[in-house]
Write a protein that binds this DNA or RNA. Structure first.
Lengths: 185, 185
DNA sequence: GTCTATATACAGATAGAC
DNA sequence: GTCTATCTGTATATAGAC
């Protein structure tokens, strides 16, 4: 059993991915871990402190996963497929990407937390670009890996956003088809 | 000056595109049009009634714009560029797509309103596919127009979601590059 | 149609005891 | 660290006068 702070963060991340940061309450995560809402303020004085902790933890967990995939001795296609699977897993849990969710709620975030979101998306883009710069990846016209990486990051965030509405995976599947074309050379 | 109902809908749509449906209050739109919140209930008894009206109005306005673009005597590339410009205009007003925003907030919508969101995205996808099925559009490997259309819809929703965080257009620009490749044949 | 007034619920945040 | 108690603000929604 991890410490209370970690339990609170995990409960909060789960809640934000399902129902957003605005819908997240000190009361609800307190109840999840068996304490009172006033005690949550001991760990996170204001809600913006909680936001910062959630983005940070989610980003670190996610970048760890991407690095692990990147270090595997598999093809670029397999790496990108493993990447897409992270989004499919979220859909199966009826979850959106935490940073995608908070991007929609950007009006309720301070500038520091907005920057943290941008850092998350930038890291993802850089990771995808590094994969697309490898061998066995086909160009698409004159589009550079950087541009294709942006396409994939935007495409995956948009796909999970829409697919989550009905729980299907139609748009995520189209992203997979695109990756197949890019990596069949 | 349009009637009160229309004024309320316009104020509400603007508000949702900026700060979400959960953050929308009867009080705020009442204040926007100079009446009291209890009077808003005369037009929209419950918030779900308001949601339905907003999605409906936004969808009709949007599909009118797409049909107008489709009917112009211009190239497929120009049509898709005009399509992307709709998203750029939203970014410039610090707005997200209303249906994209409400898709993120899907947990607070009833099933009827969820279906209305899906109908919106489906219409957009069908429209893009119809453009991509025309002449002067290049295939990308074995990807069919339907799949490419899904790529563009997801990609544009994700691009505006992320770009809105810092007000830039980096990801929307990448979508434009993709369209350029598709339509340069 | 619009108002005042109100019921009910829940939010973030703080004070102070233990 | 966690609690009880409370302050203040805001939300949806309704009753009933005009």
């Amino acid at each position: 059993m991890s410490d209370k702070r970690t339990q609170l963060e995990n409960a909060a991340i789960d809640s934000v991915q399902r129902s957003g940061f605005n819908n997240l309450s000190f009361r609800s995560i307190a109840s999840d871990v068996g304490i009172k809402s006033s005690s949550v303020h001991y760990y996170f004085p204001e809600k913006s402190d909680l936001a910062a902790a959630l983005i940070e933890k989610y980003s670190v967990d996610f970048s760890d996963k991407l690095r692990a995939i990147g270090n595997r001795n598999i093809s670029p296609k397999s790496k990108l497929d493993a990447f897409v699977k992270l989004f499919e897993d979220a859909i199966d849990d009826e979850k959106f990407c935490l940073c995608g969710m908070m991007a929609a709620e950007v009006y309720s975030l301070n500038s520091s937390n907005r920057q943290a979101l941008l850092d998350y998306f930038q890291f993802m883009e850089d990771w995808v670009a590094s994969i697309l710069e490898g061998d066995n990846v086909s160009a698409f016209g004159t589009m550079k890996p950087r541009v294709l990486a942006r396409m994939l990051v935007s495409g995956l965030e948009g796909a999970i956003l829409i697919d989550r509405v009905d729980g299907r995976r139609d748009r995520l599947k189209s992203q997979r088809e695109f990756i197949r074309e890019l990596t069949k050379a």
